[in-house]
Write a protein that binds this DNA or RNA. Structure first.
Lengths: 221, 221
DNA sequence: GAGGCTAATGTCAGCGTCTGACAATTGACA
DNA sequence: TGTCAATTGTCAGACGCTGACATTAGCCTC
């Protein structure tokens, strides 16, 4: 283990051991099978046994890869979120907090493919997003995951601005409001007809532009 | 059934039938027992069998009162949320949207007792709130419930302003941002030492006052 | 106030998620 | 090749939750 990791970190892993590659293949096969089944017949109507059987492993093995049935449903979300967070960290230091968040999310939605295409086809990822939004138990987990991400975002924003996240409420507040806007955009997208990522991106940008007008003291019609 | 309801609706029910009273007693006994156990030994470490046994009913009966184990954990939250929503509906028509939301939430936190004291002691409700925030599965459900409430709030705000909630993004956006602020305040409260409701109320007011400064283009230190 | 009606409850069997324990298999590495 | 350790399979069982059916108990009429 120690030898492998040392080499792997130095360059792109020349070739991880057979054992490791096999594990990766099993894992991604489980993700693909799960998402395929979830999107085809629904999350609740899919059993873990079905997923395991589709990949020809035992149920017990499934639970060694994923702590629970929900976790596999969020495997590609996880990648996408990492992508987004990385985008935020790469933003120029001078940029204002909200502008940085805006830039990062539009960036991430712009090339979601990079983050997940080696795992599943992007189109499946989008279909799964809809399943998450329309399945109560998954939606709940999705919101909790979002809240966890927001905590990380707040810390990054505080770092950029040279503030103490526990002393100044603004980083957390900004991120919480930002998260609310993103959620509204995402929800409206899943309710609409257009599946394309571009639509989601545009919808997000549109809603972010509305933050100012929304907080105006008096709304004009 | 028909006769009873007609009478009950006209005045305050003079005395609901024995059957109905018994049901209410069983239900509230289940809530009390559940919250007592959840706060004492944790949500995950409490089984439905334990709760049922404490009230001397069968497990099956528990599931006739509550769709699942989570639902009983949110019984008092449900009351509190109703209280809050009612407070919003009672706000003067002239008030600006954000001011109305602010007034309603401070109002609701101010006299939480009214909403729940016939069910459980308010202090138990507060302890339960902490359990919810610190139990991942409950936190997830809590956030979903919040999102559902936000949808209702958005519709009420739109109604007040004479807008179509599906055509104008501002009601949903405002409520989403507002919800984010409330959550930050609530989370900080559970992490702190002070249990009192007053502290929560003050913390909420403080964070709401910070919305403007947070969205300023440049943050001053 | 006896008896029929129906709502509430108990009992039982069973499915699905998830976990611990132990045995069997299979890469890794000397 | 043989030893070691990681991965997997098998099995038993706890817990959440549901359908079906039997039992109990409030309600209402005569």
């Amino acid at each position: 283990m120690t030898t492998d990791e040392a080499v792997a970190d130095a360059t792109t892993p020349p070739r991880a051991g057979l054992r490791e590659r096999k594990k990766q293949r099993t894992r991604s096969a489980l993700v693909r099978a799960a998402l395929e089944l979830f999107t085809r017949q629904g999350y609740e109507r899919t059993t873990v046994d079905e997923i395991a059987e589709a990949v020809e492993v035992s149920q017990r093995t499934f639970f060694r890869y994923f702590a629970n049935k929900e976790e596999v449903a969020f495997a590609t979300q996880e990648s996408a979120e990492c992508h987004f967070f990385t985008a935020l960290c790469g933003r120029p230091a001078g940029e204002a907090p909200l502008a940085a968040l805006r830039g990062a999310v539009l960036d991430a939605w712009g090339n979601i493919g990079e983050a997940i295409e080696q795992l599943v086809p992007p189109e499946l990822h989008m279909r799964m997003y809809r399943v998450i939004e329309s399945t109560p138990s998954l939606l709940a987990v999705h919101l909790r995951r979002t809240a966890e991400m927001e905590e990380r975002l707040a810390r990054e924003i505080a770092r950029r601005e040279g503030l103490d996240v526990d002393a100044d409420p603004r980083p957390r507040l900004l991120v919480a409001m930002f998260g609310g806007v993103i959620r509204v955009a995402g929800k409206l997208w899943t309710e609409g007809e257009e599946d394309s990522v571009v639509t989601l991106r545009d919808l997000t940008a549109f809603h972010l532009d509305y933050v100012g007008p929304t907080l105006a003291e008096k709304w004009d019609k």
